[in-house]
Simulated assay, not measured.
Amino acid sequence: MNIPLPLAEPLPRAHARADKRGTHEANKLAKRLRHQVGRAIADFGMIEDGDKVMVCLSGGKDSYAMLDILLQLQQKAPVKFELVAVNLDQKQPDFPAHILPAYLESLGVAYKILEQDTYSVVKRVVPEGKTLCSLCSRLRRGALYAHAEAQGFTKIALGHHRDDLVATFFLNLFFHAKLGSMPPKLLSDDGKHVVIRPLAYAREDDIAAYAVAKQFPIIPCNLCGSQENLQRKQVKRMMDAWEKETPGRIETIARALGDVRPAQLSDPRLFDFLALGARGGEVPDAHAWLAGEPHTSDTDA
Rank of each mutant, 00 (worst) to 15 (best):
5 L>K: 13
12 P>C: 06
12 P>A: 10
15 H>L: 13
18 A>H: 13
20 K>D: 13
21 R>E: 14
25 E>S: 07
26 A>L: 02
29 L>I: 12
29 L>D: 09
44 F>E: 05
48 E>Y: 09
48 E>N: 12
54 M>K: 02
54 M>C: 14
59 G>V: 06
73 L>G: 03
75 Q>F: 01
75 Q>L: 09
78 P>G: 03
82 E>H: 15
86 V>L: 06
89 D>C: 08
92 Q>S: 10
93 P>C: 12
96 P>C: 03
97 A>M: 05
99 I>R: 05
106 S>D: 03
109 V>H: 05
111 Y>E: 03
119 Y>K: 04
119 Y>V: 03
121 V>N: 01
123 K>M: 15
124 R>G: 15
128 E>H: 09
130 K>I: 00
140 R>I: 10
143 A>F: 05
147 H>E: 14
150 A>R: 10
151 Q>I: 00
156 I>M: 15
157 A>M: 02
161 H>Y: 05
164 D>H: 04
166 V>K: 10
167 A>Y: 00
167 A>M: 08
171 L>K: 07
180 G>W: 11
181 S>G: 06
183 P>F: 04
185 K>E: 02
187 L>E: 11
196 I>N: 04
198 P>D: 08
200 A>E: 02
201 Y>C: 04
204 E>D: 13
209 A>N: 12
210 Y>C: 12
213 A>E: 14
215 Q>L: 02
217 P>Y: 04
218 I>Q: 01
223 L>R: 05
228 E>K: 14
232 R>L: 06
241 A>C: 08
249 R>E: 02
251 E>N: 12
254 A>T: 03
255 R>V: 00
256 A>N: 13
265 L>T: 13
266 S>R: 08
271 F>W: 15
276 L>W: 08
276 L>E: 12
282 E>I: 14
282 E>N: 11
286 A>P: 00
292 G>W: 08
292 G>I: 08
293 E>Y: 02
293 E>K: 12
300 D>G: 05
301 A>Y: 11
